[in-house]
């Protein structure tokens, strides 16, 4: 009899535990918590960026990579595997490295750009049949500096130009951005949209603080809409769903920064675009094709920025 009581009690406890674990907070509470956390995230980030504003000497390295399926049919919303004839997805994967050094009012930047080799018709070339490893052209590099009031540009051939301040737009768009931290880092911070946020987490790891923020946007016909404001997104958190047949796609963005003693030391940004597309599949019991709408990854980009400050053992100098 005792054994039966123990077994029954254990089963009841197990069922209770299952349901306790499966319970989720309401959408209102979830969004309210995110709004509060979002405030802490941006306040902390702005404080750290302000500290960087006052730094006279620092350097950073930015690693950036992009990848796009160039043969995705945007007009008909078809993945290459659904086209006639079927094709493999052709990923174009350029990447670049950017090194920036600031000493007082002087600065120097070096950019190395790696463009993929292209065959006829602009198709990227690969070293393997599965098209996982892209082939690259010779690296292109450019250096520019502003030292003692003189702005110079040095191109891949080693030729140095001066007097190009008006022609060489220092604030140009990627891939050749002069990101005096202000450009990408501030712009990305200002672009954070509470209505698009799905999670914010901050972690203490020894003397560092790591913060992460995740966003989802819905790409409607003429609009990039935070998911909370979109009529084509339902649910929240892990239950977030999209009405693929009515949208162009969704965009996933995640920002993460690391600070140590209130100084920004690392920044990371990832963006992924999941394009809405249709897939035909044959349904056995109805003996006809069925169109299913889904979202697949068609492009992504990543930026990581490592920031260094001078120390007595490792001073920062122009090389």
């Amino acid at each position: 009899m005792n054994r039966k009581i123990v077994v029954a009690f254990t089963l009841i406890m197990l069922i209770l535990l299952v349901f306790l674990n499966a319970c989720t907070v309401s959408q209102e509470k979830y969004e309210s918590k995110l709004d509060t956390q979002g405030g802490k995230y941006t306040d902390n980030y702005n404080k750290i960026i302000s500290t960087l504003d006052n730094e006279e000497v620092y350097s950073y390295t930015l690693e950036a990579s992009e990848a796009t399926i160039i043969n995705f049919d945007k007009k008909n919303q078809l993945m290459p595997s659904e086209m006639e004839p079927k094709e493999d997805s052709l990923w174009d994967r350029p990447y670049y490295q950017y090194e920036y050094t600031k000493i007082g009012k002087d600065y120097k930047a070096k950019i190395k750009y790696f463009e993929t080799k292209k065959a006829e018709g602009g198709k990227p070339e690969y070293s393997d049949s599965q098209k996982k490893n892209s082939l690259y052209q010779d690296e292109k590099n450019i250096e520019y500096s502003y030292i003692a009031g003189i702005f110079t540009v040095k191109n891949s051939d080693g030729v140095i130009y001066t007097g190009l301040e008006s022609e060489f737009n220092i604030e140009i768009e990627p891939p050749f951005s002069n990101i005096g931290y202000g450009d990408i880092l501030r712009r990305l911070c200002n672009d954070i949209n509470r209505s698009a946020t799905t999670s914010i987490t901050m972690r203490k790891w020894f003397s560092e603080t790591v913060a992460v923020l995740v966003e989802y946007y819905v790409l409607e016909e003429e609009l990039v809409n935070p998911y909370r404001n979109s009529a084509f997104a339902t649910g929240y958190s892990e239950d977030l769903q999209f009405k693929w047949e009515s949208i162009k796609g969704t965009m996933y963005q995640t920002y993460s920064y690391t600070s140590k003693k209130n100084k920004l030391t690392f920044f990371e940004f990832h963006k992924e675009l999941y394009s809405s597309n249709k897939k035909e599949s044959f349904v056995v019991w109805s003996n006809q094709n069925e169109t299913k709408w889904q979202g697949n990854l068609t492009s992504k980009s990543s930026y990581t920025v490592n920031i260094k400050y001078p120390t007595s053992k490792s001073p920062i100098v122009f090389d």
Partner: peptide, 14 residues
């Protein structure tokens, strides 16, 4: 997110 086909979000450097 299961609603995105084969979703594999990037893992942070951390």
């Amino acid at each position: 997110l299961l609603s995105i086909t084969s979703h594999a979000p990037p893992q942070l450097t951390f």
